[in-house]
Write a protein that binds this DNA or RNA. Structure first.
Length: 572
RNA sequence: GGGCCCGUAGCUCAGUUGGUUAGAGCAGAGCGCUCAUAACGCUUUUGUCGUAGGUUCAAGUCCUACCGGGCCUACCA
């Protein structure tokens, strides 16, 4: 039995996430966590909301709430949706937790002690009307280069020229529209990543089995231009982790907080500490996941994230851990994802384009989405959601191939033998060959799951479902029943065991439907089939079951068209 | 401007270190079955592997250029 630590990139607190966000980290992480638990490994699956930063403050201001109240409310909402999608986190934490405050400040103290922090005086734009420093993206004006009127503070979208906010003509705050901006001198802490460049470079280079997407992004940042640059880790904001050196105040840093990208990854650790507290565990219980000097040596740590998060997980966070010069567990494998597009374009929160997590659950059960999203996960390149494709996959894979198999077998059994596993007959060559083929395919499936090859795993699982229909066609128990009822009984007995097998194998992908199937089959706690041949003999004659209700309903053309229209956008 | 990724059947995608007639699922066509959610099974049609060069006995696979799509470029997280 192995110990596996799994983290999903933290969803930002600002708003409900769309299906692209879901499939980019949390959902595949959940698949992996569920599978590893099925295989008897000890799993710690952690996620949390990322709550700090300017966007959170602005979103709260918009609703009129205090920022902490806003975050608390949104956290609950996101937690509820995560639950709705059956994301099986061991703990769903909050980056604003006391544990994260403490740990973030601890890391800062360690980095300071070890010479990895610099105090740098920099000039930033301050908006008098807004009463806050403005990140570049909240400043717009006319590009001095091309005259484009909506150039952002960091770059002109029209001529792509890099800009400094002070270059802009008629610069104004996009928050209030105020042009009363001034450049103020302010002091910030910089993480001296440049000092750790060689160490990180060597570390990344040793990860030859990571996805190209992951390593190429990391190497680009390491080698481009002057190489890995130092980065500011503090901000002039109210909402966040106050800058401290461990538990001590930090001279000249009053009123400043750590910047989100610094405290967010630390929350992976802090959330595990939150888990310990919430479950009456001790400090040692979470440290054995994170401290290699306290039992985490044998932990395999896997991170899941979208490609936008790769730099933070390959560079900044490792720099924090290495720089602490303490024995923290560093990630062993990073599984990164491309983006999911929506019907030829991007999902858009502001334009209400695409399907968001709450809306998805309103129209269909979680399993439908889980199956489609996972079997189309954007692993090698950006993927595309279309309603036609979604309808086709659900109807064919879930309703026809799997659902109808369950239905035809159980109903046939009920009508000929009653609602219990029939006695009589023995398995012949056909059945034995099926079992051997199944064993081989299950092994392939397991291999893909171990390797986090999600699409391939889904594909293999589907082909295992197909085998059931192929077998029935060959055995034709409805025909055999007329001349050799014992042979029909043996076929049905095997098929009922096959349904049970499908229930178990499918659980990581479609947990609710699988649970329903297994429950109806009278074996809710079925264990993973480490021995497929043995598993196929689990149900013996006389075992009672009930015919399941329709496992997966089909999506009609009318529904598809209505949804396509409903989610096309323009909602504000 | 720089960097990275992608471009394979109508659609969604596989194609390991270059090696015989390029694959799967869906859609289409035909046949079969009738237990089942008009479901299932079998057979089958379709490709100048983005374009143009190059390396090689051999290229979807390597190199160069170009075209098209996407992402990143450090203050979105």
């Amino acid at each position: 039995m192995a110990r596996i630590l799994i983290t999903s990139a933290l969803p930002y607190i600002n708003g409900i996430k769309h299906l692209g966000n879901l499939v980019g980290s949390q959902l595949p992480a959940d698949l992996y966590a569920r599978y590893m638990r099925e295989r008897g490994h000890e799993v710690m699956f952690i996620c949390a909301t990322d709550e700090h930063g300017t966007p959170a403050e602005l979103a709260a201001a918009k609703t009129g709430e205090e920022v902490d109240a806003y975050c608390a409310r949104m956290h609950d909402e996101q937690a509820k949706l995560a639950d709705g999608f059956r994301l099986s986190f061991d703990h769903y934490g909050r980056s604003s937790s006391p544990q994260n405050h403490k740990l973030t400040q601890h890391f800062a103290g360690q980095l300071r002690k070890n010479g990895f922090l610099d105090e740098v005086s920099e000039k930033q734009v301050y908006s008098v009307a807004d009463g806050r420093f403005l990140p570049d993206r909240y400043i717009e004006g006319t590009c001095p280069n091309c005259g484009f009127e909506d150039a952002r503070g960091d770059q002109c979208d029209n001529c792509t020229k890099q800009l400094d906010p002070t270059d802009l003509i008629d610069a104004h705050s996009t928050i209030s529209g105020s042009t009363d901006l001034e450049v103020r001198e302010t002091k910030h802490l910089h993480l001296r990543q440049s000092l750790l460049k060689d160490k990180i470079d060597a570390w990344i280079s040793s990860k030859t089995d990571w996805p190209i997407l992951t390593t190429s992004i990391a190497k680009k940042w390491l080698h481009d231009g002057d190489g890995l640059q130092d980065r500011g880790i503090t901000r002039d904001l109210n909402w966040g982790v106050p800058v401290k050196d461990g538990e001590n105040d930090w001279d000249g840093m009053d009123g400043k907080v750590f910047y989100v990208w610094f405290d967010a990854p630390v929350e992976y650790i802090a959330a595990t500490a939150e888990w310990a507290e919430a479950n009456g565990k001790s400090e040692a219980d979470w440290e054995r996941w994170w401290r290699t000097d306290k039992g985490a040596d044998d932990v395999k740590y896997v991170q899941f994230m979208g490609k936008d998060n790769v730099p933070f997980h390959t560079l900044s966070f490792p720099a924090t851990l290495f720089g602490s010069q303490e024995p923290w567990k560093v990630v062993d494998y990073i599984k990164s994802f491309n983006y999911l597009n929506y019907d030829g374009g991007q999902f858009s929160t502001s334009r209400g384009r695409g399907v968001f997590m709450d809306q998805a659950l309103e129209i269909l059960p979680a399993d439908y989405w889980r199956w489609w999203l996972l079997s189309h996960a954007p692993e090698n390149s950006d993927a595309e959601f279309t309603w036609e494709n979604f309808q086709g996959s659900i109807n064919k894979d879930l309703a026809d191939v799997l659902g109808n198999f369950v239905s035809r077998v159980t109903k046939f059994c009920r009508s000929k033998f009653g609602e219990e596993v029939p006695a009589g007959g023995t398995y012949s060559d056909v059945e034995n060959k099926l079992i051997a083929d199944l064993a081989a395919k299950v092994a392939v499936y397991e291999g893909h799951m171990e390797a986090m090859e999600i699409r391939k795993a889904a594909n293999e699982l589907r082909s295992i479902w197909v085998m059931g229909n192929e077998y029935l066609q060959t055995a034709a128990p409805w025909a055999a029943f007329k001349t050799d009822p014992d042979a029909a009984a043996a076929s049905v007995r095997l098929s009922l065991n096959l349904i049970r097998l499908y229930g178990v194998l499918s659980r990581p992908f479609i947990p609710d439907a699988s649970a329903a199937i297994l429950s109806d089959m009278g074996d809710a706690d079925a264990a993973w089939p480490t021995d497929v041949a043995a598993a196929m003999g689990t149900f013996e004659a006389g075992h009672a079951f009930t015919v399941p209700a329709v496992t997966f309903a089909k999506i009609s053309d009318d529904d598809r068209e209505a949804w396509a229209e409903k989610f096309a956008g323009v909602r504000t």
